[in-house]
Design a protein around this nucleic acid. Sequence first.
DNA 1: ACCTGAACACCGTTCAAGT
DNA 2: ACCTGAACACCGTTCAAGT
Lengths: 214, 214
Amino acid sequence: MEKPRAAGVPRSRNARGSGDRLRGEIIDAAIAILAALGPEDQFSLRSVAKAVGIAAPSVYIHFPDRAALLLAVLEKLFSAQVALRNAAEEAVEHGGAWARLLARSIASVEFGLKHPGHFRVLFEGRVVPRLTDPRVADFGRPLLVRSIELINQIAPAPGARRVSDDPQRLALLLWAALHGIVSLRINKPTFEWPPVIELVEQVTRAIIQPALAG
Amino acid sequence: MEKPRAAGVPRSRNARGSGDRLRGEIIDAAIAILAALGPEDQFSLRSVAKAVGIAAPSVYIHFPDRAALLLAVLEKLFSAQVALRNAAEEAVEHGGAWARLLARSIASVEFGLKHPGHFRVLFEGRVVPRLTDPRVADFGRPLLVRSIELINQIAPAPGARRVSDDPQRLALLLWAALHGIVSLRINKPTFEWPPVIELVEQVTRAIIQPALAG
DNA sequence: ACCTGAACACCGTTCAAGT
DNA sequence: ACCTGAACACCGTTCAAGT
């Protein structure tokens, strides 16, 4: 993600055919603005244009409207999210499916707490209106799919039986619980919160373990 | 919550000293608008004024700014939330603390799914900017306090021991999980969701039971 | 093909003026 | 004391015009 140009700095004219470069710059500027957006601030298409150094209507050459720009932002943020969780999983040297699932859970929660602006855009529909767009659902699906795979692979304790509950159901429930921890932590910051990583481990165990019980 | 006046209908002048009545009407109109607000729509102070039948600047006689109006909205919505959960708990005829806790959980989740607009305002910081305002935290605290009380009262199975984990920690974790179910269900509607009430019961059991284990 | 300034209907908020 | 219309700086979006 490139740094957005300082406001007002004049922009050298794009060479012919370099329209895609500007498109990318617009997306990156929007992402940078969303990251720095306090709860008091508004996100505006005009501020994105200003950061890139173009006139506001120029955005419409690359995106039909504000929602389309935000859809492209979502796509990029979700790709980064997939990469982040895969990296966290691959960093697990010794450990099976359980350790990998937990590593993914912790990485996603840590991301949310570190980048609340992006978490809100990704998972709370903040700023983005067209959540029912099927593309948005597809952006997030790989995250769920990998979670289901790992839950399926988790070995039961000796003497206990395999995962008995529907793994997709468990994956959705786990996602909801982790999502809730970040969302409530962000939105109700004045409560007395214990260390969040502990909560993540506790709730992951609580949801998966009964399904493994003998 | 009174029905807001139809847009444009002229308003008879308030009698002297009836300023508080208008204040209430503004709050109720805002609540009605937020309830009907689709994800595409914007909430505006001007639309509230229009619904009440007054000029936009008249709102400023009763509220210093938009955020103050929304704070009053939050206060009323939280009161209603407390009343709703208390009613759900009192409807439990036979059953101890566990049944009461579950009744409150189900009632709160059903409310969120039925009134996503209000859920977002109450718990996702939608539209409302000043979430760090300590008053907002206090609005929600009775909900947490009652949950802690009930968790403390839950009787362990015969032969098992009392709640061993910090009850406040369990209450926060339970709240986060329930919050996550509603939030993710609302914000990711295209996933294949099992019946939500089943998820509520499953996750409540999963979080509370390990603390009761012998 | 790519980008612009001017204009439109909106928004929150301020302020001088009316009853 | 209570409410208003006009005005300000913003917003998303459209459009005719420029290179």
